[in-house]
Design a protein around this nucleic acid. Structure first.
Lengths: 195, 195
DNA sequence: TTTCAATGTTAGTGTGCACTTACATACTAC
DNA sequence: GTAGTATGTAAGTGCACACTAACATTGAAA
């Protein structure tokens, strides 16, 4: 067993259990068990539960969700581009579901760190999408709405949908319904912002 | 001190502290102290912390947020009506902020009860708003989009805004910014759904 | 074969918290 | 005044959990 491997397994187990039971609800025993190590080993790697939590949050920050996507979009039709953005965004949210849960529930525990991560995530998204809208606006392909508000509106529709389905109601996500919602949202948004 | 008064004060204190610290983080000592009673009295009214939590959730369910509003809207201009809906919705969310936090974080504790309350809340909102859209559509004042998807899109934009501002970042909400966001969202939505 | 690092096992300690028991006090109704 | 009801105070129980100490085991490198 390579060194580093154990540490990672503990971090992954922490992510899972902190997400499922909350910081206080997840016990070090459970985390160690899920990681397949003894509880003592957990404390050899992380001097306290609090430190484990901190390291976990830091190491599992969000990947850029949309960065690098914009260039690919410039040639596409507006409607198709928005569908693509929506798809990617929902995929990223789905991947980071556990982390999102934790940040929602434990934001009071590590206010500055969690807020920073969250803020950066939202900012990156909004700015990326807003810059895309600004580009289109300069080409006269959409009307002159505020790009940031537009970005927040679009991402907000999607986030709420994700939140209701996957975080709160924990439904099995049905692919076809998701497609239908995306199409509906995009439709409204396209009509609402077209030139 | 009337009977019933004490019980209520404990429930209110429970709401506040469960919201702030989570179910496990809030102690019965703290709750009793905030309610201005001794811890023993708390246990005289509620046989366990779990029961207190359950009673609290049940008694503080959501009030209908938009019901009864639709009739008032029928005479109004579409844009103004949406602004009014947005304003009311955000006000209701603001009032029930603590409860919303709890439901987000503790949904795994009382899955069926919490889900039911939450589901009913969303359903009431979506159905009310969708019926308004359907009415307009029948009069030919908006185009033929799916009223339910439209409702989810509109409420979703607003909810995400509320969530980011008040639940996660706990910002002092600046009234003017809120107005600006509402206007921007409504603008996009109106253009996106107008006939 | 020896050595060393990573991990396990066992058996703790101390603390905070939900919850209890026993008894005291204040106030109200009769 | 007496009885009863709501509340308080003091003290404590038992348990789960974060965290520790001491020693055993394994496996690979030298």
């Amino acid at each position: 067993m390579k060194p580093g491997d154990t540490r990672d397994r503990i971090l992954v187990a922490g992510l899972r259990l902190f997400s499922k039971s909350g910081y206080l609800g997840a016990t070090t025993r459970e985390i160690a068990k899920l990681a397949g190590v003894s509880e003592v080993t957990l404390f050899r790697y992380f001097p306290s539960k609090e430190k484990l939590f901190g390291e976990m949050i830091s190491s599992y920050s969000f990947l850029p969700a949309l960065k690098g996507l914009v260039p690919e979009l410039t040639g596409m039709e507006y409607r198709d581009a928005l569908c693509e953005i929506a798809k990617r965004y929902l995929e990223r949210l789905h991947e980071r579901k556990d982390l999102i849960r934790i940040m929602h529930c434990e934001i009071h525990r590590y206010p500055s760190k969690v807020k920073l991560i969250y803020h950066n995530f939202i900012d990156e998204l909004v700015k990326t999408l807003a810059s895309y809208f600004r580009e289109l606006r300069d080409e006269g392909r959409v009307r002159g709405f505020d790009p940031e508000i537009g970005a927040r509106a679009f991402l907000g529709m999607l986030f709420s949908y994700f939140n209701a389905q996957e975080i709160l109601l924990r439904r099995s996500e049905r692919h076809e319904e998701r497609q239908r919602m995306i199409k509906g949202f995009v439709e409204i948004f396209v009509e609402g912002t077209a030139a």
